[in-house]
Every structure is written in C-alpha cells, then in structure tokens.
Design a protein around this nucleic acid. Structure first.
Lengths: 345, 345
DNA sequence: CATCACTAGGAAACCGGTTTCCTAAGTCTA
DNA sequence: TAGACTTAGGAAACCGGTTTCCTAGTGATG
C-alpha cells in the first residue's frame, strides 16, 4: 500500500482532483455536501496531503530558518539559545510554519564568497525567512539577502544605522536597573567586571546603562573600577582580587558582573578574602543561569527573557514574510531585575 | 527578474531540461564538454536549483525532525538538548540534510488520538526521519510509526524490550564510575540523593550502577541512605540535613547526587552544618553544568557527552533512512568522570 | 418563455525538478 | 561496407498538489 494521494481521493470520491484540492482549502465554490463527502473519504482512507507538493505549488516552504553557531559546545550561551528556539517555535507553529536549524559557525563564514547557508537554505527555497544571530552577520550577508529581498530578523546587537529588523535584550536599561538597585540599597562606589571593553557593543551598552543610572543619582564610575576582560570565572576572580588589593578608600562597595561566570569568580575571591557579602560588598550580575539562585549568598541577577526574545523575533519575521513592503523595525526586550541576598543590605 | 529555473538554463544553453538535470547530478551520460558549458551558464545566471522541486521529484524531504519538549523554559535540561542539536546537525549536514525542530510537549500528547507531529511532520512528508526524546514516547506513537515503517531513533531511556533504535547515556556505568571513584578515595559509606525513586528508569540505572561498584568492592548501600525525591536544590538541601541529623555512626562519608541542583543543595546544607568537604564528607554528582567547576570546593562530576549523543543518534537515523531493512540498534554513550576537589582526599 | 446571472465543479496548465525510454550519430567488428 | 553496439542527449511522463478558466445546470427576471 503506497502513499495515498489526492488522485486516489478524487477517484474514490468520484470528483476531480481540483475539487479535492478545493475541499482541502475549504473553497467557497464547493457545496457543503460535496465537502462532507470528500472529507469522509479522506478520513476513511487516512489521507494526509503531501506538504512538499503544496510547497511546490504554492511556491513557499512554510519553513523559517534559525542560523546560529552550534559549534560552541559548552558555552554558557546554550540555554539562552535553547529558550529562543522555544520562543520561535511557539509563534511560527501557530502559522503552520516549521523551524529549520542550521549551523553557521561565525568563523567559517569566509568574507569573500557567499556563506554556505545562502545556497543551502535561502536560494534553494528551503526557508521563507531567516532569524540569525548577530554574530553571523557580515556586510556581505546583508547585501546578498537584501538583493534577494529575503525576509530576515537579527537577534542580538545591531549596528547603529540598521536597515533591517532586529531584536535584542535591552542591555542599556538592564545596566540602569542593576546600578539603580545598588544605589537604592545604599551602595555608592560601583565597579564593573568583565567584557571585551570599550568598542564591544554589549560592553558599551551595559556599562553605559550603569553609568546613566549613576549619573541620574549624581554619581559616576571611577574609571579604574571598570575592568574589561574575557567574561569568565578566572577573570572575575582575578579582578576581584585586584579590587580588594586597592587601598581601603578606593575599594568599591559593590560590583556588577558581566555574566554569572564572572560573578562566580568574584564571589569566590570575595569569600577567600573574608569579605562579607552583602554587608561589606554587594554583588549583582547580568544573566540568571539556572544555578545562580543557589550560590552563597544567592546572586542578584538581571534575567533575560530569551523565550520572549524568540517570540518577538518570530513575530517580526512572520510579519515581514506576509508583508514584505513594511519597513524594518527594531525592538528591545526588557530585562528583569531579580533581587536576591547578594545585594540585600 | 523572477527566479531562474532549470528551464531558463536549458534554454540559455540550448539543451533539454533533462540534460540540465543530468548535469546537476553529474550523470555519466553527459559529455564533459556539455557539462562544462551548462555549468558555466548556471554560474553566469546565478542559478540554484529549487530544493522543493527536487524533494517532490525524489520523494524525499532531506529533512530530519527533532522532537523535544520545548515548553520547559528554564529547565536544566536545556543546555543538554542544545548540545544534542549541535551533534545532530554536524552529522546530517554532511548528508545534505537539514534539521527541523518541533515542539512536542509531553503533556499535550493525548493518549487517544495520534499526536500532532504525526501529521505535521511525518505523514505529510516534511521529514524523512525522526529523533525524539524518550519523554515523548507513547505506545501509540510507536505503533503509528511502525505501521508507516518510518525511521526514527529515541534519545534517552528505552523500555526493556525495544523494537526500535535508541541511544542513551550509559547511566549504569556512570554510577559505577562515580561510586568506584569514591571507594578508591577511601569513602566507604555512600548515600544517594535525588530522583523519583525505584521504578524510574534513570534512578534505577544510576543507583544500580553505584550499587554494582559497591558490590564489586564488597560493600552495599545502606537502604536508608538512598533518598529519592524531585532532583532539585531544595531536595538536596533537605536530604543532606536529614543525613547529617543521623547518629554519627550512621552518617554517610560520601554522597552521590542525581544532578547539579541536588549537589548544590547538598553542598549548601553541608556548609551550613560546618561539615568540611572533602575531608569529612565527599560529594560527587551526575551531570556537569557550566558552573559546577566553580563551586566551593569544585564538584566532582560525571560529564555527559550530549554532543556525542546527538552525533550517534543522527548516525543511526541516517543509516535507518538509507537502509530501512537493517534491524534496530541500541547504543550507550559513555559518561566521563571529572574529578575535582569535592572528593579529593 | 427567453434571457441572464450565478453556482458547483471539472479540465488542464502549472510549480521545477527527475527519470525512463528512445533515437541519431559514431565506433567497432567481420 | 553492412550490421551490431555504444554513446550523448532529447521528449515526455511523472512527483502531488494549486489555480485559472470554462461549462453545464439552476433559479430569477421581464
């Protein structure tokens, strides 16, 4: 028993295949009686239309692609992206779209020739739209996609004059929230740990947000307390040691960390030095990894709603697919402050 | 300028479309000269064949589906699955397949009628094969897939008499490794914390593996020290408190935790009680979350190579797709013991 | 009763490839 | 040089839907 097709149904129902197709699409020109009859036969024969044939006829794949760097094995970004996937799926599923995930390691995309996914996914019609991590972005990629007028949405930091759609976490306001919280709790001399440093958009946004909050309260960062470096545990530990080695009056009374790794390192170094948290020193951090609530003391975090990020990216993409004429749009997803004991004084 | 098709190329090259198709597939019956000529024109006209048309003609989607429960937002399983995705992609990409991710929340699959993905993905031909998390599995699903002779591979624990392909982490041997390590370090009275309890396959495998190692060294679990409960931080904390409340001679000298959450809880409770780790008490745990190396002391972990899990699952699926006649196969991925300070005595 | 508008449904072209089958020309052999 | 065999490439059917266009039949209207 090979696969049942629309022709088998047409034959069994004694109607034309075009009629069956119209029943499938609930066309108005088919009588209720015929519809019922044909549908009964479909059910009886256990028929499911081939989506590939539909795709060819409709000239649409009903697929969207997600382009991310899957080659990072144990990166802390993993659970971030996993939630994004869930968010995307929850939106496109309602539109009968499926999600195709494609690896695009940021290194391998050689600048000169077009990246592999352009043929594998875009030009051959495997997907109708693309959501891509901004780390994949290159000027060449943008040029190619624009030339094809292909709908896409970027996730993450977008260049200043964007001509395309993009969603990101509101890191600037996130930094503001963290700093404002610390100030409100009475901390006055804030330090910042981690990140590539000025020039890195993420760093600039986050530090900038903190600085804004400080300014609004008549304070500023002591530049020596803003310490840039790869945002990992070792860095957090090292920088915290350096901060604690400063003369007492120059030491910060609170630290904002670039992510939970740096926060773990900072926390460990503070413990090792016998500094009491949150009394002597407050620690707050961007991101909220699953284990962050269980440190000692639990860490005050800025939680990124990455599921929502996926939701919004998918919504924007679906809009661009259905209405290509609309102009590009940028959105920021607010981050939420989760106050815990590490700043509770 | 609408999309270039095979007909355009045929016209431009002055050959039949069948010839162009043969060039695309590098057929032997086409002369090198013709191939070169046609390929030049393809390049010149910037032609990419429509994969949807190919799919229809070849009766194959060149897609595999991954069915997981995406509705769990912040679950600790997230980074687990993310790595699996990467592993799968790395294999199927080489076969020119793409990966379609589909949400199948384990709750929503009502027992009676066939789950949504059967129509959305399988019967309509959107994918040629399926990798699914074992939590999605139901007898009904298996029946339907078997009836269609549809290739699929399960990830995670498989029932005893499996008739289908499955891959899992070798939890039994993992438990053995953890327990053997503790014994080797001189710990003698082991406890186990977390898991749903006897009957849950994961629990049985892990505890069973530990028990085997004990037996091999002439030891056994004191049944009162095997404590089942939802594997989270609160449970780890509570059970550790209970263990430490036992009379001194009944207390364990080492604890094996079901996952990093329980380990965090256990660690916190031990600290709170002033127990010194690893001297008085050893702590080892299944799983190795990104932050586990940075606890105080760093946790001895059993690292699951979930990327490899994805790789093997994908390999098995590709084999089943290309050679459906082969019989089902089960594989176990070895887990790796990472010794850190929490058991270093 | 003749004409018209409207309705339900059918025939055929189409989407863009693949595959089978066939033929004309060239090569080999006797 | 005739007949058999090989080879390169073309024509057409096919994959399974969708869509356009057309027609037969019905009811309404003057």
């Amino acid at each position: 028993m090979s696969k049942i097709t629309i022709n088998d149904i047409a034959k069994a129902a004694g109607v034309a295949k075009s009629t069956v197709s119209k029943v499938l699409n609930d066309a108005a020109s088919i009588s209720d009686e015929t519809k019922r009859k044909v549908r009964d036969i479909m059910k009886e024969m256990n028929y499911t239309p081939s989506s590939i044939a539909t795709q060819l006829a409709r000239q649409s794949s009903f697929n969207v692609g997600l382009l991310i760097d899957l080659s990072r094995k144990d990166d802390f970004l993993n659970h971030f992206f996993y939630a994004i996937i869930g968010g995307i799926e929850s939106v496109i599923g309602k539109h009968q779209y499926e999600l195709t995930i494609c690896n695009a390691s940021s290194e391998s995309s050689s600048q000169q020739d077009s990246p592999a996914f352009m043929n594998r996914l875009v030009r051959n019609g495997k997907v109708d739209g693309l959501i891509m991590d901004s780390s994949i972005w290159t000027a060449e990629t943008e040029r190619l996609l624009a030339e094809l007028q292909f709908p896409y949405v970027l996730i993450g930091d977008a260049p200043a004059e964007v001509t395309y759609s993009a969603v990101d976490i509101d890191n600037e306001n996130g930094g503001r929230l963290l700093a404002a919280h610390l100030i409100e709790r009475g901390y006055r001399r804030l330090a910042f740990i981690g990140g590539e440093g000025a020039g890195e958009p993420l760093f600039d946004r986050r530090v900038g947000g903190c600085a804004n909050a400080l300014r609004e309260h008549g304070l500023t960062f002591d530049p020596r307390l803003v310490m840039a470096g790869t945002a990992n545990e070792a860095t957090g530990r090292l920088f915290m040691e350096q901060l604690l080695a400063l003369p007492a009056e120059e030491q910060p009374d609170a630290v904002i960390c670039m992510n939970n790794y740096t926060a773990f390192g900072a926390l460990a170094a503070a413990h090792a030095a016998g500094v009491s948290i949150p009394t002597q020193l407050g620690i707050a951090t961007f991101d909220d990894y699953p284990l962050a609530p269980y440190t000692n003391p639990p860490l005050t975090c800025l939680k990124m709603d990455t599921f929502e990020l996926g939701v919004q990216a998918a919504q924007m993409l679906m809009t661009r697919i259905s209405e290509p004429a609309l102009s590009a749009e940028q959105r920021l997803i607010p981050a939420a402050l989760i106050t815990r004991a590490s700043t509770d004084r």
